[in-house]
Design a protein around this nucleic acid. Sequence first.
DNA 1: TAGTTGTGCGCAACCGGTTGCCAATACTTG
DNA 2: CAAGTATTGGCAACCGGTTGCGCACAACTA
Lengths: 325, 325
Amino acid sequence: MRSTATITDVANAAKVARSTVSRVFSQPSRFRPETVTRVQVAAANLGYAPNPLAKALSTGTAAAIGIVVPDIGNPFFPPIIHTAGLCATRFEIAVLIADTEETASREASAMEKLATRTDGIILVSSRQSNAAVLQFASRVPVVLINRDIPGIPRVLISTKVGMTQAVEHLAGLGHTHIAYVAGPRRSWSNQERINAVLEACGRLHLDLTTLKATNPTYEDGMQVAGVLLGSRATAVIAFDDLVAQGIMAGLAAMGTPVPKDMSVIGCDNLVASRTYPPLTSIDSRASEAGTLAVELLLQHADKDTRIVTESDLVVRSTTVKPRRT
Amino acid sequence: MRSTATITDVANAAKVARSTVSRVFSQPSRFRPETVTRVQVAAANLGYAPNPLAKALSTGTAAAIGIVVPDIGNPFFPPIIHTAGLCATRFEIAVLIADTEETASREASAMEKLATRTDGIILVSSRQSNAAVLQFASRVPVVLINRDIPGIPRVLISTKVGMTQAVEHLAGLGHTHIAYVAGPRRSWSNQERINAVLEACGRLHLDLTTLKATNPTYEDGMQVAGVLLGSRATAVIAFDDLVAQGIMAGLAAMGTPVPKDMSVIGCDNLVASRTYPPLTSIDSRASEAGTLAVELLLQHADKDTRIVTESDLVVRSTTVKPRRT
DNA sequence: TAGTTGTGCGCAACCGGTTGCCAATACTTG
DNA sequence: CAAGTATTGGCAACCGGTTGCGCACAACTA
C-alpha cells in the first residue's frame, strides 16, 4: 500500500481543518497569509500531492481524456497521439489510450471502458457505424478525427489541396497519363483523395488510370507495380507512403528505374524522407489534428464544429519529366 | 454532467441496501438466488456500470497502469505499447500513456503524475539516472524495459544472439572485414550490441571497423556511408534499421550497389521488410516486452526479476558474398 | 421449548478529496 | 459603545463505491 500524505495529514500538521487545506490551494485569497503559508509549509514537508482520483470523484471531472485508435503500430497514429498528449499535459490532463486492433466491437467496448474514467474521448479513424458513434457521443463528449459525422465535433486530415498540387506538379512536368492507386474504398481519406485527383485530371486534361491496393500496405503496393507497368501511365500517385514504397520496390524488382521511367508520389509524408530515392509526398500535417482534437474536447466544442487541416506537396526526388516515348 | 446510474439507484430499484448491490457483484453466493437476480435485473435495466474512480478510491487500487516512453513517434515503441495494452485489457486494466520527449525532467514529472492515478508504471528506455529511478521505484511499483537497474524488475530487449548470428552469417559468406555503426554510446542496447560484435569478430578472426552514428537516425546513417566506403569493410552492421536505411541511401547516392559491393545488416527488424532491397535485420521481438512488463507489474514481481528476450537474424536480400577484390 | 448455529442482508464508517453553510472573531462605522 | 459588516476557518454532507460488524430470522440440535 502506497503511503502518500493525505489532506487530513496536512490538516493535522498545520492545525487547521481539512476544508481549509483544500481551499488554501483553490482560493488562497480567502485566508490570511499566515495561514496560507502554514498550510503550504506543512504540505511541502509531507510531500503532499492531491489524489486525482479522489478529486475526480468529488468534482465529477476526471482530468483525463481517452484516445482510441485502430492500431498504434500504424505510423499514421503515433504523431497524433504525441501531439494530443502534449496538449493534454499543458492542461494538466492525463491521457488514457486504447488500441482497437481495427475491430468495431473492440472499439465499442474500449470506449465504454474509457467513458467512465475520463471527461471525454478522442476517436481516431473510427471503424464503427455512424449510428453507433452518434449514440455513444450523445452520452459522452466525443471528438472525431478523420471521420465526418454531422453532429459530432470533428477534425479531418485533408489532403485535397496536396493531391491537387500533386496532379498539377505532374502535369507541369509534362506527364499526360497518370495512375492513382486507391486505398480502402470506404475511408473518408480515400474518397477525398480520389475526388481531388479526378477533379484535377479532368481540369488539366490528363488521362487517369485508377488501380487498387486492397489494403494500404507495402505488399499490396508491390503487387500493383506490375499492373501499373501494363498501363500507359508515366507517373503514379499512391494512396499513402506505404503503398508508394511498395510500388517503388515492385518497380525496382522489375528493373524499372524510379524516377526515370516512372514518377512516384506518396501521401502522408510519413516515411517519404527515408526512402531511396527520397519520395515526393503530400504532407497532411496529421499531427496537428491531435492538438486540435484535444482543444475541441476540452472546450466542449459545438456539435457542428468541423475543422479541416491543410496539406502541401513536398517535392523530393521521385518526380521528374516523363521519358520521351 | 454525465448521468450514469449509481449503486444507490440500483439499490433503490431493487429495494435492497447499497452494500447488497456491491456484494451481489463481488460475492453473489452470499445471497439467495432471488435477491441476486432482482439486483442484476435492476442493474441491467438502469444500465449500471460501477464507477472505476469510486472503486479506486475505496479499494486503493486504480485498475490502471502507466507507461512512459521517450517518444511515441519512434517506431520502436508502439509495438511495445500495443502488446502492453493488449495484456492490460485482458486484466481489465486501463493504460495511461506519457511521452517524455526524450528528456529526463519530463520523464520525472510524468511519472509523478501517473503515480497517483495508477497501480504501477512501466518505464521504457528511461533517460533518468539510476538513482532517480531507484528512488522513485521505492515509492511506486515500477517495471523497467530496456534499462538494467539492479533492484527493479526489468525486461531487456536483447539482440546479443542476433548480433552474434549476424557476424557469423557474414563470416560464413566469406567476409573478412566488417564494420559496425554504433548508436547512442550510453544506451544499454548499444553496449550489448557492440560487445556481441566484438566477441564474435574476435572469435572468428574478422577485422572490425567501428564507426559512429551520433544519433540513431536516417540522416546520420547517410553521413556515415562515406566514411564506410573509406574503410576496407565489405559488410556493415548498423545499430538499428533506421541507420541501416540511411547507410543504404548514402551508398546508393554514391553509386555503390547494395548488396553487391556492400552487405548491410540492420537491427530491430522494424522497417527492414520495406526497404529495397529488403534488409537483412535482427528481430528482437521487442513487442513481447510489453506483455512481459505488464505481467511483471501486476504480479508484483520480485525486485531482482530480470528477463532477457531472445533475438534472431532474419536474412533477406542485403547480404551476399563479398565481391572479389 | 430453549439454546445454538447459520443464512441473508443492512448499518455505518471509510477512501480523499470538495463545497455550502454557518459560527466566531475582527474591523468598521454611526 | 452598540450594531453592522468582513474576514477567517470549521462542520458536515457529498461524490460512488467497499467492507467490518451485527441484527433478525430460520433451521437445527438437544
